[in-house]
């Protein structure tokens, strides 16, 4: 028995769609149901939403999430692009360097987090030691326990972990730029930084756009680094929404409130993504 041609395509696609539907779309619907019911399953309207919006931590966590993800992306893209351009130069050992710098990206987030937590340790951390030896600071800094330094420190780790991804993507994008464009620019008397500004970057724009989107998604998902390094502390100064959801669900066993928070988080993320895609699409 042959399957009619017009059904063949869908037959290939169906298994994957079915799995994703079970694992993604059903849970989304279920989250919405949980968010408007109480633990016994009775409909309670927006009660769970109200109690989460009233919770002092919700706004702080959301703000922290924006700062953490926003600054992470800015530095990941800036540093990653610069490194990509750097590695596009011809130099001895280029292949090895390209391979090595990607290692931070492939290692488990938890490994990065614990290693950096040890390096940031107030008393025995190598970072305080080096900074003190270089007379950058004269007292040990509690990087992860000082409200002013905790988010920058966490952002540093996140940037360190993810900039290699940007770099290899940029590198691939650079290699797709036809060489004659550079030659044309050179004939016109362009200098190196002009080349970067007028040839390289415009060509990278589509690549950078999709990278930024991916980084945003991953950033909003990323619990690991913060969870392992500070658990949101000190005094919730590094609490982000995903950790708040996790706490309500798995530490306080308040699944309905956690679901309400999830719905709000999903809504906010979807809004950001749509805005981004809209802007991206318009510019093209």
């Amino acid at each position: 028995m042959r399957i009619p041609k017009r059904f063949q395509g869908i037959m290939f696609v169906l298994p994957a769609l079915f799995v994703l539907a079970m694992l993604v779309f059903y849970p989304i619907v279920y989250t919405v149901v949980l968010s408007v019911t109480d633990p016994a399953g009775n409909y309670v309207g927006l009660e769970n939403f109200r109690s989460m919006i009233d919770a002092r931590l919700t706004a702080r966590a959301f703000w922290n999430t924006l700062i953490y993800v926003g600054f992470s992306i800015i530095f990941q893209v800036l540093i990653g692009t610069a490194v990509g351009i750097l590695l596009n130069n011809e130099f001895w050992g280029r292949g090895a360097v390209r391979a090595l710098i990607v290692v931070p990206w492939v290692i488990p987030g938890i490994v990065a987090a614990t290693t950096w937590a040890w390096m940031f340790h107030t008393e025995f951390g190598i970072i305080n030691y080096m900074a003190q030896s270089a007379h950058v600071i004269d007292q040990p800094v509690g990087w992860l326990t000082n409200p002013d330094t905790v988010l920058p420190a966490l952002i540093t780790v996140n940037v360190w972990k993810m900039f290699p991804f940007v770099a290899i993507m940029v590198l691939a994008g650079l290699q797709a730029i036809p060489n004659d464009l550079y030659e044309a620019a050179r004939i016109d008397g362009a200098r190196k930084h002009h080349e970067i500004l007028y040839v390289t970057l415009p060509h990278l724009r589509p690549v950078l756009m999709s990278i930024t989107l991916l980084l945003a998604i991953w950033g909003l998902n990323a619990i690991t680094i913060i969870y392992a390094m500070t658990k949101g502390g000190p005094a919730n100064r590094s609490l982000i929404t995903p950790i708040q959801i996790f706490r309500h669900a798995f530490e306080f066993f308040r699944f309905n409130e956690a679901a309400a928070l999830s719905v709000m988080f999903f809504g906010a993320t979807a809004l950001l993504m749509t805005l981004y895609i809209r802007i991206y699409a318009e510019k093209d």
Binding site: H121, E123, G142, T145
Partner: peptide
Amino acid sequence: APPSTLENDGTALRRL
């Protein structure tokens, strides 16, 4: 108390 207090749990105290 040491400056690392906000990162110290029981185990860390034992180490210190």
